[in-house]
Design a protein around this nucleic acid. Structure first.
Lengths: 358, 358
DNA sequence: ACCGATATTGGGAACGTTCCCAATACAAGT
DNA sequence: ACTTGTATTGGGAACGTTCCCAATATCGGT
């Protein structure tokens, strides 16, 4: 049996575990520098201006000596700032999401924030679960890119004062900033390119628009612009969020058979572009000689497939970066109504929209 | 003008802001249920077995009434469990990283952990910065997939007792579990496929191997297996981590010109496959009729390019999932030496490795 | 009826910060 | 000299948990 000292302070166990040396605290720094912990706290907070020159130097020396780094959890507990931003995305494997995440991560890094990334795999239930988890970590702000079926949960957090930014899609009933593509401009760019190339029949393929604003906008603008350009236009929505290859094959085949005048397919986003390419590949020997293809969203491999796939590229990286910028402004207390920030798309014209006059 | 201005203020600001109702604490629940906070804490901790049936019911009712959710920061501060896992990746836009992240996120979700994702964009300095940040959040474990140039920083955390798992690549001097591909099996699979198809000259293209174990292993096994199969083998390393298209074009051209016997290019990973395809596309009219191509890493578009690109696919999703599983075991205190877990690859044979007898 | 187990429960003291307020120092104004 | 002000600095009480230890209740066994 150990003969422990009679004092009422027993030694904390974790100090005894190998390699688990207690990390220095603000207190240790203060003692080492011969000052009060408040001053050390001020050094790391936004009140460094209050400190005298000699104080700053002594603090820095002590920090250096002890290898001190502040505990963000403790700091987040007492103060308001956790430095944590939540990001809820519907599909982390979607190229759009990846690029957006890349931009967002960069912006966070530049401003001293860290990203708590949550993937819902398109499940509404998982989205709710993730929102609860993020709430538990007292995130300072939230970036949302999901189907928007949980308006209630989101609105609750929003009204509780949580800064929030939607990416790509607006959600009805959520008074909240949004950052995304100028769908009007993007689709118009695509359709007029197809018209200029001489296509006369257009088909847009998309996932179910449900309530998703960007999808609805693309369909709407597509119909309107095609009509204005005197082109016949058809829209096919997948019955499921996840594209069924059989459905797609049947749909495309039917549209192709009905042909006569030269036609082109407009893919509403990158995921659709991939699915359509796979379908055409299975259906036709030489797809792009019989039908034009234009995709919204640039993908790394678009130049490689057949004669190259024409795309309307959105600056996804910038959108992710912009989402964080917008969010940080709100976190810092920027007042005013919810704002919508849109970015413009650029056309990458390639062989898939060169009309072959057979 | 707004009534709320940041700055000095006698009243705590956040209680006045609209919608900033103080969130309920464990204390509130206890009072509402007429019991002590300790019991409520036990309910959420791993000591629910201690509680009587009636106690559990009263707690649950109170939680329901108040909409209580525990504060993870506070809980992490006093206890050891933060529920946070750090993930440091070299390139978040690499398809490998994305799939790995997907698997890891799933595993975390299933076990009640959350991921703090850090992208270093291949910068050693950023990696160090990120490690410091993660340390500040008292992460319970760390998943690392980087170049491994910061052995010192990593080893320090490791020796301080931080559970850690490396993904894809082992780092010398870091006594730490690793999860990745069975490179021996994967490359052997690829090379024997090429031999069976009748190719006689092989070229492997890779980024600089530096100290990266998986790259070194692939090169080594490639050389060995090609030799064993009686094939001529050459390896070209990009001078930079980021592939320079001009360098690649020149390198490939030189190798192609030196030809005679039918040759095939082995791309050491997905990023290389993309670059090689772009290069061949620019160089040759009908690339795959003149040279075979095989890529390590399956990519969504491999079936679409030319006659389809043959790949050796690694189960990246499983690797990410496995990394978290391994990490959690260590977090729970699994003892023993560092272990290496490898997954086996599968061949996707496509047209790019069908030898054309001209 | 008493003693010692064995279940439950509760009361505080941590955890490492930030924030409020008070205290000190020195210069300037009257 | 006596306020008044303006920089600095420090002390202690939060923040919302978990953990240690003590308290109470229950139950056999003697």
């Amino acid at each position: 049996m150990t003969a422990s000292t009679p004092g009422h302070r027993s030694e904390p166990t974790h100090r005894l575990e190998p390699g688990h040396a207690r990390r220095p605290t603000i207190h240790d720094v203060a003692r080492d520098a011969g000052i009060s912990k408040t001053s050390v706290s001020r050094y790391f907070g936004h009140e460094r201006a209050l400190l005298s020159e000699s104080m700053v130097q002594r603090i820095e020396a002590a920090i250096e000596r002890l290898g001190f780094a502040p505990d963000r959890l403790a700091s987040g507990l007492r103060g308001r700032r956790t430095g944590l931003i939540g990001m809820v995305v519907a599909d982390i494997r979607n190229p759009y999401t990846v690029d957006m995440l890349h931009g967002a991560e960069l912006a966070c890094r530049e401003h001293g924030y860290s990203l708590l990334v949550c993937n819902t795999d398109n499940s509404d239930q998982l989205e709710r679960r993730h929102l609860e988890v993020l709430h538990g970590y007292s995130i300072e702000g939230l970036v949302v890119n999901t189907r928007g079926r949980n308006v209630a949960s989101l609105a609750a957090r929003r009204e509780a004062g949580l800064p929030m930014v939607l990416v790509d899609r607006h959600i009805d009933g959520l008074d909240c900033d949004m950052v995304g593509l100028d769908n009007e401009q993007a689709v118009t760019l695509g359709v007029s390119h197809l018209r200029d190339q001489g296509y006369q029949r257009l088909l847009m393929v998309t996932e179910p628009t449900d309530g998703i604003s960007s999808r609805k906008a693309r369909v709407e603008v597509f119909r309107h612009q095609a009509h204005a350009a005197g082109l016949s236009a058809e829209v096919q929505q997948s019955p499921q969020e996840r594209i069924d290859p059989d459905w797609l094959a049947a749909t495309l085949m039917q549209w192709l058979r009905a042909g006569g005048r030269p036609g082109a397919i407009v893919c509403a986003n990158g995921v659709i572009t991939l699915a359509v390419c796979h379908a055409l590949w299975a259906l036709l020997k030489t797809p792009f000689e019989q039908v034009g293809v234009l995709g919204i969203d640039e993908l790394s491999w678009c130049a490689l497939v057949g004669p190259g796939i024409t795309t309307v590229a959105q600056p996804v990286d910038d959108i992710g970066y912009g989402a964080i910028t917008t969010l940080l402004n709100r976190i810092r207390g920027a007042p005013g109504k919810a704002e919508i920030t849109t970015y413009t798309a650029r056309l990458h014209a390639r062989g898939s929209t060169t009309l072959k006059t057979t």
